[in-house]
Write a protein that binds this DNA or RNA. Structure first.
Length: 733
DNA sequence: ACCTGCGGGTTTTTT
DNA sequence: ACCCGCAGGT
């Protein structure tokens, strides 16, 4: 290996060691900003340079964004070299592809669609009904969480049933069974199925294990601390024959235990693979000293934290600022003001700033503040567009075109827009379908056999079928085959979806929804344009296949995937979505007990520690500037409550931060009190005469409650209530 | 068949 | 505060 080239330039010793590592298991413990992506991508490039076929390299990530970035950086490092066959993909996309390729062998329908969260919810609801249980006792969220847990442990419905002792578990098993039946007859898999089915196939089928193991002779797994059991099994199986597995991660950044991530996967790596090389990347190339100190000081409070030192050579930098605002609006404004200053005075571009929060619900107030300030912002919610009602409707038509067994989609759009196929008719169809074990679409196609269906409904059904079949014919036309965009436009038009929003009977048209539908056509056109580039399966593709691939890509997008650093806008996102990203300036809002840490984590130490890691992840996104904000009062779910500062703020070493004095919410309390007392008659410029009832305290300030003669009892801010003491002999009393 | 208004429930985080 | 399901009216 004389010419290991420029790939080793400018690396620290541990980084270099990781990059040159050729064969055998390797664990890379990579703290925040320690250049792990650099190490991984250079290692891939070096493997290629050493003559390893791109075909035999597999790198698995969690988000498309991470995969895309890795792909891009490898491409840059390898220059013009041919990297076809190199697989860098998310676990889910990889699993979907493998399942598709081995579908007949694995007993998976070849044309399966992937159920998104909303589909899963609908299916779960249906499953509860089919299991003969009350939907009121079985909220879909908890049903799905129970099923998801089982799936991650690779347990099928039968196994859950076999191990079921109490009524609850037995019921879960029944619902699980019904749920799988629905998925099966819908030719659908959910997210967990993708991993579970591949994992069990690899576990049970030696030849498949052999096949993937020999194809992917070099395996890399990113964010290994966040792998769940199914992902662990997949990775272990692929590496079983050759042991060339390189995992990269950081136990301190494990933030997905709640969805099954098992931190012992990374902690036990060295005992799983005897003789594994372990490398720790300890230099932080991202953040300045105070930020490193503050975040390290916080994470040291975790019992599970293994002591280690991170150092930076980027200088002391500014201390992170801790501030407390009166309420969430003031907090948002504070962030906006400070960001504006950073933009104007320190020339930090908007796209180098981010606001992070614990819950998506927090984005609204921040958005409002940015909008009023005229600062460009972008909410990282990749799925938001595809979750809009009108888009979901349109997508349901497309999904039905792709997979007629998709009952959930059919149910969604059969009468949207209304075309005279209502609940009564569908009840008959459902019953017929259940009796003959058919999908709803198949049942509709045999509508002449369903006698209960009225003449009118029958005509409507025929019209619907003619429309759908017209689309099918267009799609398979060998000449004049439409593009995806044309297909979408046609569906929007002929289904009447677009028209429904255009000429609303009430009056004005819904321009926003129409614009969104147009945007869907554009998205399809983008996909059409992408078609020839960036696809390693260069098979001739019919429209059916393109549609399938597009729908799959949409099903697998994550929130973080949409972050587009090219645009000059501040990014707003959850702390979870921020993992793996970095910005010059970061603000974390809602640093309050009950928010961060979330109240649901209070009673469990391991959950509390995960919250602390979440805070740590957020803080370590910042290169130079870090703001930690909290509101002393916050309105959540319609009720305003006092908020205590997060315990995490107290755990940060005080010498590493600058604490701004909070405004005193009671400051104005004394001002009015002198002149009036409870029971005293007063006069108000607007409400007229009344009597003081009591004084109150709210986080925004002191209040005074007055019972007005004309207007009844009113609570006013004491500071601004221009009350004049008056005489009880006033004629109005 | 569809719309409207009311009441009950409420998992934060996501592939 | 908001979403969802259901009852009752059009």
């Amino acid at each position: 290996m004389a010419t290991d080239s420029t790939l080793l330039e400018g690396l620290t010793d541990p980084q270099r060691e990781a990059v040159v590592h050729h064969e055998g298991p390797m664990l890379v413990l990579a703290g925040p900003g320690s250049g792990k992506t650099t190490a991984v991508t250079r290692r891939i490039a070096l493997l290629l340079e050493r003559g390893v076929s791109p075909w035999s390299i597999l790198a698995l990530t969690f988000t498309n964004k991470a995969a895309g970035e890795m792909r891009e950086r490898v491409r840059r490092l390898t220059g013009g070299r041919d990297t076809r066959g190199l697989t860098i993909a998310t676990f889910h996309a990889f699993a979907a592809r493998q399942l598709r390729m081995a579908s007949d062998r694995l007993g998976v329908p070849e044309d399966f669609t992937i159920f998104d969260a909303a589909d899963q919810k609908a299916a779960a609801k249906q499953a509860v009904i089919e299991a003969g249980l009350e939907t009121s006792n079985w909220p879909p969220a908890s049903v799905l969480s129970a099923i998801g847990q089982a799936k991650q442990q690779l347990l099928g419905p039968e196994e859950v049933e076999r191990n079921a002792g109490d009524f609850y578990t037995r019921s879960v098993a029944r619902i699980y069974k019904a749920y799988q039946k629905i998925l099966k007859r819908s030719h659908a898999l959910d997210f967990d199925d993708l991993l579970r089915l591949l994992a069990t196939a690899l576990r049970d089928d030696a030849s498949l294990r052999e096949q993937l193991g020999s194809r992917f002779a070099y395996l890399m797994v990113d964010e290994y601390q966040d792998t769940n059991h199914a992902q662990f099994v997949i990775a272990s199986a692929i590496a079983a024959s050759h042991g060339n597995i390189c995992v990269v991660g950081d136990p301190d950044q494990s933030i997905y235990a709640w969805r099954g991530a098992d931190i012992s996967n990374i902690l036990d790596f060295e005992s799983q693979y005897a003789g594994a090389t372990a490398i720790s990347l300890g230099q932080n190339f991202r953040s300045t000293e105070h930020i490193v100190q503050a975040s390290s000081g916080l994470i040291a409070h975790n019992e599970s934290h293994r002591a280690r030192t991170l150092h930076t050579e980027l200088g002391a930098g500014d201390r992170p600022i801790l501030f407390a605002s009166l309420d969430e609006h003031a907090e948002a404004k504070e962030v906006v003001d400070r960001f504006k200053r950073l933009h104007d005075e320190d020339s930090i571009p908007w796209n180098e700033m981010a606001v992070l929060y614990r819950m998506n619900a927090f984005s609204r107030v921040v958005e409002d503040a940015f909008r009023t300030a005229g600062v460009p912002y972008l909410v990282a919610r990749g799925t938001a567009f595809y979750q809009r009602k009108e888009i979901k409707d349109a997508m349901a038509y497309l999904r039905l075109l792709r997979n007629e067994a998709d009952d959930i989609s059919l149910r969604r759009i059969i009468n949207v827009p209304t075309r005279g196929i209502g609940g009564t008719t569908m009840d008959h169809v459902e019953r017929f379908a259940a009796r003959h074990d058919l999908s709803l679409m198949a049942a509709i196609r045999r509508r002449s056999e369903i006698e209960a269906i009225s003449r009118r409904a029958a005509t409507s059904i025929d019209r619907f079928l003619a429309m759908v079949d017209g689309w099918h014919r267009a799609m398979s036309a060998s000449l004049m085959m439409p593009s995806l965009a044309e297909l979408v436009a046609r569906v929007l038009d002929e289904s009447g979806l677009e028209k429904a929003h255009r000429a609303k009977p009430g009056g004005e048209e819904d321009t926003e929804r129409i614009a969104n539908l147009q945007e869907l056509v554009s998205a399809a056109a983008d996909r059409d344009a992408l078609q020839d580039v960036d696809r390693d399966d260069q098979m001739p593709t019919g429209l059916e296949v393109q549609l399938a691939a597009w729908l799959e890509a949409i099903a697998l997008v994550a929130d973080a995937d949409t972050i587009d650093p090219e645009q000059g806008a501040v990014t707003l996102m959850t702390l979870h979505a921020a993992k793996g990203l970095e910005f010059d300036a970061v603000a974390i809002i809602g640093c309050e007990q009950g928010v961060l840490p979330h109240s649901r984590a209070f009673d469990d130490l391991s959950q509390l520690e995960e919250e602390r890691r979440l805070c740590y992840v957020g803080m370590t996104r910042a290169r130079r500037r870090l703001l930690l904000g909290r509101a002393m009062s916050r309105t959540q779910r319609g009720i305003q409550e006092r908020q205590a500062g997060s315990q995490f703020l107290d755990e940060i070493p005080p010498e590493a931060v600058r604490v701004l004095e909070p405004e005193d919410p009671w400051a104005s309390a004394s001002r009015v009190r002198l002149d009036v007392h409870p029971g005293q008659p007063v006069r108000h410029p607007r409400f007229g005469l009344g009597r003081v009832v009591r004084f109150g305290r709210r986080p925004q300030g002191a209040t005074v409650t007055v019972d007005f003669v004309e207007f009844g009892a009113r609570t006013l801010p004491a500071a601004h209530a221009a009350l004049e003491p008056t005489d009880a002999s006033d004629p109005a009393f």
